[in-house]
Design a protein around this nucleic acid. Sequence first.
DNA 1: TTAGATACTTACAAAAAGGTATGTATTAAG
DNA 2: CTTAATACATACCTTTTTGTAAGTATCTAA
Lengths: 142, 142
Amino acid sequence: MKKTGDVEFRCYFQLAMMVIGGKWKPKVLFHLGQNDTVRFGALRRAVFGISEKMLIQSLKDLERDGLVNRKVYRQVPPKVEYSLTDIGRSFVPVLNAMFHWGQSYASYLIAQKEKDHDYQTGDVLENIDELVQTDNEHITVK
Amino acid sequence: MKKTGDVEFRCYFQLAMMVIGGKWKPKVLFHLGQNDTVRFGALRRAVFGISEKMLIQSLKDLERDGLVNRKVYRQVPPKVEYSLTDIGRSFVPVLNAMFHWGQSYASYLIAQKEKDHDYQTGDVLENIDELVQTDNEHITVK
DNA sequence: TTAGATACTTACAAAAAGGTATGTATTAAG
DNA sequence: CTTAATACATACCTTTTTGTAAGTATCTAA
């Protein structure tokens, strides 16, 4: 009954983007997807580079939108556990798909780089070095 | 050899987000994915609400990042055809996954709305009406 | 010679997103 | 009485993204 691919696309895709949009939300979701419950502090340490402000902001949005559960333990010092809801968890495969595509795209970029010596390629490629370097840093140091 | 899920995640996921990030790129990609080649003007009409500036900007980025081909026909008036490259096309399944998730999320939102009469739910829900309305508009009008 | 079609470009403004720094509440341990 | 731990909140500023409006180039047809 709902036709014209354009319309459907316009709506449902936008909806999905409203939820995972932004710099941090996908990462938070991804991490939550790998654990049953995670405390605020653990999440903060797990999502490299995120500030407390951004973490709470992301979690609040995700909770409001129904993807995340928040469980408060009335203790001191406080303890709050976050977890994915059912729809939240149903999004994990999508995240995995994005992650895996990122992997193959990285391979592609590296292959491209070896081909074109001239810097034909753009911004993303300029970052691939840093990216790989970061990888190495962690691989060799750890 | 590359370990610590965190690191991998941090990089590859970011990479993917660099490509599909923003308000319009996913939509442009989605539409390109449904056609072999699309002219600039057709794309502009297809991606509802996009301005010419945003369209070119998106296409430039995507071309620079290797996801999109640009073929110029030396004519007057000008003719330019856009299409997906191989890696570009390999991203289509991911887009579809996002789209489908959006669909089920919409169902969830509607179900939720019928449950809670009090407006427990947040921003996304406030938009669902408009969303459905838009759908109806197109369904009934067309 | 003037208007129309197409694919852009540019300048400027508005809005959204993100970052940094600092503050709050509570209780237990020292 | 001070410090530490944890989970936030708030103010303010910077950067990034998006939008609006106008202009450019080229040939064809009227």
